[in-house]
Design a protein around this nucleic acid. Structure first.
Length: 865
RNA sequence: GCCGGAGUGGCGAAAUUGGCAUACGCAGCAGACUCAAAAUCUGCCGGGGUUCACUCCCCGUGGGGGUUCAAGUCCCUUCUCCGGCACCA
């Protein structure tokens, strides 16, 4: 807090009145400012500008009357609408559509919407036919929870929030085509979400399975693996438990290899590609069949997966997941009680408990297995460190060369046998690197990498093992036992089994219920509406029951980008004319969707490609992740801006005081767009000052344009065009704003009237970032609206480089001076010039130049002894 | 543990291919204008030393080492912070 400073404020008697931009009273009004202390100024550490913000004069910039005016102008001329028949090349720029929450937008949201908007406007000026749509991901728990609390239908709250969001998005000045707005909760929209599900069902990709899944006790619904973050529910943070349920699943694993290989060709941040790749988790190895002998002497094949077949001779015991089907068959009677107790204990544990163990646990089940490569008889254990969901749920343990097996073997006193010699030994820890095979029969002496292949070939020929690829990715649990989602369009018929609702009967509308409350019984609230549940089978006409589970929130968002192309098309998911827009050229949004939404969308798109709905497999050619806006909270650490933390900065006040254009530019200026940025109210003033200076500069020269500008002005113009264009293309938005400031500093230093083409070029360059400002000045200097019908300017390199160059003179690598010479001056000429500099000559004096390094136009380094 | 990212003034940050480190902005200091403030404009603004002064010198991009005429940038090594994944055989 700056206690030595008083902030001046004035009352605002003019709000709501209209004003002539040239109102004479302006200066008087500003002189009458009384020095008082603004309570808000103190709190926010930010002074209010001491001029009447309601008035723009000729030479003083004020945002308040120009911004609404131009927004209205653009809207009334329907400037932002994209047309299918526009002959210009298409460009599809997509923002991740928001969930319309009740709390509205904060400056962090602004950041994610400003960048794509600037980019869209730039593409527009570059001559593209730009599609830049917006919509609502409106299914999901907040609206539903609200409904539970207040008893109002979620669609009502959703509608109200959408209105509020739209109003706030309008404040950003973004050029969304609202005629293409989509809403995932609109039956005309979710008709197609259900249609996709039906197609997946028909193609065997949607199936029902009874299996243990993740259950959120607070949301009272089953959730997918992707919804679980560190053992907690992604939505509410509650610790997730396991529950056996009959669930709808989507066979995303069928696409594992394509989802992985497709990443290679994408212009996406490496981080996101790495996260998806890790999530899919491909590993190459082999499945090997051991013979397990049960208590009755019968042999059972026991299949294990390993990535290290080269260590097969080092297997000294076997481990199965406690849930493994063979456990009951193989356990010997004397071990049964202990085995059962262990299995029960593990089943009752949450994932969080299971993974946060510090020590290995396990039980010997009494049975043994035969190692097929050497005929050895080794004991079978069960332990929770082997997971049922990965591989075959059973492993061979090679303690010498696996950290987990090593730890387990140490604890239970099992044999540790080295079979790969790496030179480091196995006395204190497992050696997991490559080496030479030992104790491995005929494979001895072979390098482990080579042995890995050989041993698999050998096993394959004997029918005891085969090469296999495993993925961490699991099928997608698609059922939710909640109300506010798309009903799954399936009917259970006693005679025909599970039957998809006829496509002509879609959408299956979400019926009204009396209670939205999730039941917690494993059934959704829809199950209580018997007149809805009981229906007839589409196949045989007999009695049938509707599926009462709904889809996850990710369903509608997995394909919405396709629907923007033809949002009102009644007969197809995408109209023929709409197909021209696809795929998305640039997708902008936060990194939090790296493995959820982005993976699901790719899966949906690949499926729609397979059934001929779209002509491409990858929906988003280029992805850009915005950094978050953080705020230094009470903890003294940067935290994410969110309503629950109480640290949101409301953009409304900033827009009121500085204008939308200032805030837009500040959001870009605040730091590199891909990195998180710490919010500071102070910074916006610098950008606002820049706009004021620019306005002043243009308006004082308006009408007195010299016919031919000086070379200095020309150089500044071409440099500006070059810098802005290049930095924009490279997404270096923060330095792009600097380029404008550098330009203004330079031209005001020149103290010379600019020519009109220079000012015009500057305004066009500025238009994507400060659209209202640029549009207004464009008109004031005599241009016809709208500035967005102008062409993006180009530059000429001959004006961006000077004819003279300042050459840095170094002696032994240390700068000792500079000389001003012609840009194409030769080494000798530069040397001559350098020697006439007293300081340089002094450093050379009495020494001999041993070596000269000359970079034309840049540097001359003299190595002297 | 693995993967990804970051570390530069009081602060946000900039620096094409290795070529004057700190552009641009904020904050600060001094001055002009003003009765005074605000706004605006001008100048200064990494640390240390030196000169009456114009200057000039040394140090400086988390730490240590290396390559090079020249390193924020390349190589090796190490520390710290942030994000993601994590018993995946």
């Amino acid at each position: 807090m700056q206690s030595h400073r008083l902030w001046a404020v004035i009352d605002r008697p003019h709000i709501g009145e209209s004003h002539s931009p040239n109102m004479r009273g302006f200066f008087k009004a500003s002189l009458q400012c009384r020095p008082t202390v603004s309570k808000r100024g103190w709190e926010r550490g930010r002074p209010l500008p001491c001029y009447n913000p309601q008035m723009s004069s000729d030479i003083t910039y004020s945002h308040t009357d120009i911004e609404p005016k131009w927004r209205e102008y653009w809207a009334s001329r329907r400037l932002h609408e994209a047309h299918d028949d526009d002959p210009r090349p298409k460009y599809y720029c997509l923002d991740m559509f928001p969930y319309p929450s009740g709390s509205g937008l904060h400056v962090g949201h602004w950041r994610s919407y400003v960048l794509p908007d600037c980019w869209s406007r730039y593409k527009w000026l570059k001559g593209f036919n730009v599609l830049h749509p917006m919509g609502w991901d409106a299914f999901g728990s907040p609206a539903e929870n609200d409904a539970i609390k207040k008893g109002i239908h979620p669609s009502i709250g959703t509608r109200r929030n959408v209105e509020n969001f739209k109003r706030q998005l309008n404040e950003i000045g973004a050029m969304y085509d609202w005629t293409r707005e989509v809403n995932t909760t609109d039956p005309e929209y979710y008709k197609w979400t259900q249609w996709i599900f039906v197609q997946m069902f028909k193609h065997g990709l949607a199936y029902k399975a009874h299996m243990p899944i993740n259950w959120c006790p607070s949301c009272k619904t089953g959730i997918s693996n992707e919804d679980v973050v560190n053992g907690r529910c992604e939505r509410c943070g509650t610790e997730v438990t396991k529950r056996e349920m009959n669930q709808w699943m989507l066979r995303i694993t069928k696409y594992a290899d394509r989802l992985l290989s497709g990443l290679q060709g994408l212009d996406w941040p490496e981080k996101v590609k790495a996260m998806q790749s890790n999530w899919i988790g491909r590993s190459e190895g082999a499945e090997v069949t051991f013979k397990a002998v049960g208590p009755d002497g019968a042999e059972h094949p026991m299949v294990i997966f390993t990535t290290r077949p080269d260590t097969l001779f080092g297997a000294t015991y076997m481990v199965m997941a406690p849930e493994h089907a063979l456990v009951a068959t193989l356990a010997t009677p004397d071990r049964l009680a202990e085995v059962d107790a262990y299995v029960q204990r593990v089943k009752s544990e949450s994932d969080l408990d299971r993974t946060s163990k510090t020590e290995k646990t396990g039980v010997f089940i009494g049975a043994h297995a035969i190692n097929p490569v050497n005929g050895e008889r080794i004991p079978i254990w069960i332990s929770d460190y082997v997971l049922m969901g990965y591989g075959t749920g059973a492993i061979m343990a090679v303690p010498a060369h696996d950290e987990r097996d090593y730890e387990f073997a140490k604890k239970f006193g099992l044999e540790i046998r080295e079979v790969i010699s790496t030179g480091q030994g196995i006395a204190t820890e497992a050696s997991i690197g490559e080496g030479t095979m030992v104790n491995s029969g005929e494979f001895n002496g072979m390098p482990s990498a080579q042995g890995r292949k050989k041993i698999v070939e050998w096993m394959n020929s004997k029918g005891i093992g085969r090469p296999t690829v495993n993925y961490k990715l699991r099928d997608w649990v698609f059922s939710r036992q909640r109300y506010w989602g798309e009903p799954i369009p399936i009917i259970d018929c006693a005679k025909c089994g599970l039957v998809a609702v006829d496509e002509k009967d879609l959408p299956v509308q979400l019926p009204d219920v009396e209670r939205y409350q999730p039941t917690g019984t494993g059934e959704s609230p829809l199950a209580a509406i018997s007149e809805w549940v009981n229906t007839s089978c589409p196949k045989c006409g007999g009695p049938g029951k509707r599926e009462t589970d709904t889809m996850p929130q990710w369903a509608g968002s997995s394909w919405y980008f396709l629907r923007y192309t033809s949002p009102r098309e009644p007969n197809a998911l995408i109209s023929e004319a709409g197909k021209k827009w696809l795929p998305v050229d640039l997708y902008v949004g936060g990194v939090e969707h790296a493995v959820l939404h982005l993976l699901y969308s790719r899966f949906f798109t690949m499926f729609l490609y397979d059934i001929g709905v779209v002509g491409f497999e990858e929906p988003f050619k280029r992805l850009f992740n915005q950094g978050m806006i953080t705020y230094i909270g009470k903890s003294g650490k940067a935290e994410k801006m969110s309503k629950s933390k109480g640290n949101v900065v409301n953009p409304d006040e900033l827009v009121r005081d500085f204008g939308c254009d200032s805030l837009r530019m500040y959001e870009l200026f605040v730091g590199p767009p891909e990195l998180d940025a710490e919010w500071s109210d102070k910074g916006i003033e610098g950008v606002h000052r820049f706009l004021k200076r620019t306005w002043h500069w243009v308006m004082t020269h308006n009408g007195n344009w010299p016919a031919s500008p000086s070379r200095e002005i020309l150089v500044q113009r071409h440099l500006l065009v070059k810098n802005v264009t290049e930095r924009l293309e490279a997404f270096r938005m923060n330095t792009l704003v600097s380029a404008f400031m550098e330009f203004m500093n330079a031209v005001t230093n020149i103290k010379e009237a600019p020519d009109k083409p220079t000012v015009e070029a500057m305004l066009i360059l500025l238009a994507p970032f400060a659209p209202h400002f640029a549009e207004e000045l464009w008109q004031r200097i005599g241009g016809q609206p709208t500035i967005f019908h102008q062409k993006w300017p180009g530059w000429d390199e001959k004006f961006t480089t000077s004819d003279t160059a300042e050459i840095v003179i170094q002696i032994g690598g240390k700068t000792r001076g500079t000389v001003l010479v012609n840009a194409d001056a030769t080494e000798d000429a530069v040397l001559t010039a350098a020697m006439s500099d007293a300081n340089i000559a002094r450093h050379i004096e009495g020494k001999q130049i041993r070596k000269r390094i000359f970079v034309k136009g840049k540097i001359l380094n003299l190595v002297a002894v």
